[in-house]
Amino acid sequence: MSLRSGDLTVGECHTRLLTQDLTRTQLVMYAGASGDFNPLHTDDVYAREAAGYPGVFAHGMLTMGLTARALTDWVGDGRLTRYGVRFRSQVWPGDTLSTRLTVTAVRDESGQSVVDLDVVTVNGAGDEVLRGYATARVD
């Protein structure tokens, strides 16, 4: 699948559900795959008793990774040229997450058509947990 620059309109939005119930197991899977074994994300005893949090919370990079699916499912595989985010607030087990992609520009970059996107991921309460941008090659 691929997007065509002529079919894209600045301001158009695509919303994508990422998860309806983020599990602690997903956090454990992310720790194992990424090598980020910070116990804040997988060790509830540590997170509560030693670090003073209500419990474990997601790696920021898990939220960025989950959000990437919304991007690649829409723009296609291997087409991103830039993707960057700020982590705005914590993501907790049980959270529902969805991503909204908004077209901010369709332009030419060194002879290649690209689309610029605003990327926002929110939790079930509507709070932003991640905000960023992406650029992808389009046809």
């Binding site: 990422l18 998860t19 997903q26 899977m29 992310y30 194992g32 795959a33 990424s34 898990l62 990774g65 989950l66 990437a68 699916r69 690649t72 499912d73 595989d77």
Partner: peptide
Amino acid sequence: MLFARAVGDPN
């Protein structure tokens, strides 16, 4: 494959 599973992407 393991990383894609860890970020919930079955692509």
